[in-house]
Design a protein around this nucleic acid. Structure first.
Lengths: 160, 160
DNA sequence: CACTCTATATATAAACC
DNA sequence: TGGTTTATATATAGAGT
């Protein structure tokens, strides 16, 4: 919308990315407000800019100062209920450091797995060398083969 | 937008409220996707229709992790860290609950990613149906193709 | 950055299937 | 619910301040 058409990909120029973010953020927050008001829907939205700032909207948060997130927690709670995520808890006594380090550990594993998943999808492979690429391809082939044979056996099972 | 101008208040006619909801929901989900993609932002959105159905968007959910809300929990966790706690009485000290819930959310993401990684390797696929298997195979093929072309271009680069 | 100004691109209301 | 069409309302890209 506007003078030029935009490609649907990350805007490389940092300045215009920032400007576009600011404009579109306002636009979408307004849309969220309108949707909730017009259609009597419960809407929650959380936005982190690439620089790390957070913006939010939640239904029935005060319109003028809608940065307090009063209802956010309730909507999130409702979401968890619907989607079915149950939390059990134990481990009462721990130090701050132990919590932090566990979180760091988990985050690290997540980063590694994300990279691996991307590689499996053929993304972010520009940094990989020939050797790694070959290994990855081999692994993908193994996956394809296993799936093929699984499909075949499924067909037989289904047909019977 | 459209033939008539709309008042900013709850649409009383139930049918048109429903129709408007459906259209605007699609619109805003698209906007959320564009915002995250164009501006490299992390975006999470939860929408409950007045009839109680839930719809959602979370950055990257539809890419590698096209599973319902794999990233949602992590965005919520990040939100809770950076904002949610500012509005409670404990501004500076995180509660035990907040540590635990963040860890649980990270752990959950890890579980999902582990399962997905195994599938990519053709493991643990005995529970998958034909449809899922086909989809997985397609994704693996995309990966293989991308790697092939990358290998080819690498050879040229290396040769030069 | 926040805001202004326009030309254009999009979203969508209304009506009908 | 989903699509289609069309006229109109909005959003916003690009450029400037």
């Amino acid at each position: 919308m506007g003078r030029g058409k935009v490609e649907l990909k990350r805007i490389e120029n940092q300045t215009s990315r920032q400007v576009t973010f600011s404009k579109r953020k306002n636009g979408i927050l307004k849309k969220a407000y309108e949707l909730s008001l017009l259609c009597d829907a419960e809407v929650a939205m959380i936005i982190f800019s690439s620089s790390g700032k957070v913006y939010q909207f939640a239904t029935d948060d005060d319109l003028v100062f809608h940065f307090n997130g009063c209802r956010m927690d309730r909507i999130i709670a409702r979401y968890r209920n619907e989607v079915g995520l149950l939390h059990s808890n134990h481990k009462r006594f721990r130090t701050l450091e132990s919590w932090k380090s566990e979180i760091e550990e988990l985050q690290k594993s997540i980063d590694i797995m994300e990279a691996r998943l991307r590689h499996f999808c053929g993304e972010d492979i520009s940094t990989m060398g020939i050797k790694e690429l070959k290994q990855l391809e081999r692994q993908l082939r193994v996956g394809v083969d296993r799936i093929r044979s699984k499909k075949v056996s499924n067909l037989y099972t289904t047909a019977a």
